[in-house]
Design a protein around this nucleic acid. Structure first.
Length: 270
DNA sequence: AGGTTGACCTGGACGC
DNA sequence: TGCGTCCAGGTCAACC
């Protein structure tokens, strides 16, 4: 489900509702494979911890915690279908709930994930969480251009490579390429500086608009309060195969690149 | 080393 | 109704 705008929206929601909360205890479901930290240790570390804040890094939600043993990070990746919800103790428990953190206030943070591609990990000192890729928002156009110079792969695949840029997924890759007027199958290394600058600007705009709209709810994404996003109403190519381009009327085409579906307008994108 | 492919999972939409 | 097929917002390990 979640790319940068969705994860940003969820992290902001968690921060608004749970900053300064204290975790009393953690319940875990039977599917512990998605835990990168052993269940017993995760329960021990989170139990009694105080939440300083939640924020986003790439597609990860990072909780900064204060514990008796010092500063700890609680890192959640939502995979394809993960949800982080703030609930009340007597709210009905959704199917595929894998973790519930009960707060002193009575509220709960619940992690729900039908496909179980999500991941949960604790970083205790001296380990600190960090990601390889560059944040696309505000990274600067020169750094951005440099990422793609030597990449002999379609620009679509390069945008999805999280060790280059972190946070862009299938929706925002397609939408940004449309806005930049670039076909997804173009080789990254063959794009001109001017084209890469255009792509950089397009990404800034698309991501900012998507965050402002609270993300895209294509099937099941919801924010920390359980509400859907609105940016899917502004998609211009993603999952619009066969529908007319909103700029020129040409039918949107769907092709496969690197095993992922890609949507583009054959007239507007060169 | 960089690039590509299939595996990991469940569920919803669709066709017969 | 039921069953099979295809598709899905993301990584990774295993190959070339």
């Amino acid at each position: 489900m979640p790319e940068l705008p969705e994860v940003e929206t969820i992290a902001r929601g968690l921060n608004a509702q749970l900053a300064a909360a204290r975790i009393l205890e953690v319940w875990l479901g039977p599917h512990t494979k998605l835990l990168q930290t052993p269940p017993a240790r995760l329960k021990r570390v989170l139990g009694g911890a105080r939440i300083a804040n939640f924020h986003r890094e790439g597609k990860h939600i990072v909780g900064e915690l204060e514990t008796a043993k010092g500063a700890v990070q609680w890192v959640i990746h939502l995979g394809m279908t993960g949800r982080c919800l703030v609930a009340k103790a007597d709210d009905e428990r959704a199917p595929h709930t894998h973790l519930i953190a009960r707060m002193e206030s009575g509220r709960e943070l619940r992690f729900v994930d039908p496909r179980r591609f999500g991941k949960i990990e604790i970083f205790e000192p001296p380990r600190r969480f960090h990601i390889a890729g560059i944040e696309p928002l505000g990274c600067g156009v020169e750094r951005f251009v440099e990422l793609f110079r030597a990449r002999r792969t379609p620009i679509k695949s390069a945008l999805l490579n999280q060790s280059l840029l972190t946070g862009i997924g299938n929706i925002y890759a397609d939408e940004s390429l449309f806005r930049a007027g670039l076909r997804p199958q173009r080789l990254a290394a063959r794009l001109t500086r001017v084209e890469l600058r255009r792509l950089y600007e397009s990404i800034q705009i698309v991501l900012a608009e998507a965050i402002a709209a609270g993300g895209s709810s294509v099937s099941d994404y919801v924010n920390a309060s359980g509400s859907r996003g609105l940016f899917q109403l502004q998609h211009r190519v993603y999952r619009r195969t066969g529908e007319p381009c909103l700029d020129c009327g040409t039918k949107i085409v769907r092709i496969e690149i690197g095993g992922r579906s890609s949507h583009y307008c054959p007239h507007c994108q060169k």
